[in-house]
């Protein structure tokens, strides 16, 4: 079971919790477990094709999973997974 830290912007979808738990052996499994517990957070993390949205960054400890194999990055018992938004936007 990994601890998952939820950014302020998404706490409305985790009943206000800043920390939730997710079971899984990879980052993808842990995040999917969180979306199963809190279905409303799903559309903010994944797009219609089931891909992680470009503004969602996932850290295991201090390391971005982009450097650890993406959603297949291994998660060990007691790891802390942090969801960090990359803020983006702009005019057309």
């Amino acid at each position: 079971m990994a601890k998952v830290l939820i950014p302020t912007a998404l706490r409305a979808f985790t009943d206000g919790s800043s920390e939730v738990e997710g079971a899984g052996k990879t980052a993808g499994e842990v995040i999917t477990a969180v979306t199963e517990s809190y279905p409303e957070i799903q559309k903010h993390l994944f797009d219609e094709e089931g891909k992680l949205r470009s503004y969602v960054n996932v850290f295991i400890g201090d390391e971005n999973i982009r450097n650890l194999g993406g959603l297949d990055a291994p998660v060990h018992e007691g790891d802390v997974v942090t969801l960090v938004p990359a803020i983006a936007g702009g005019r057309p």
């Binding site: 302020t8 998404l10 470009s54 503004y55 983006a88 936007g89 702009g90």
Partner: peptide, 23 residues
Amino acid sequence: IYHSHPDHPPIPSDYDLEHGLPF
């Protein structure tokens, strides 16, 4: 979060919508 729209109205774009966060 604040950002500017140079030479464009201060209205969210489709790109803003695609990347926006609630709250």
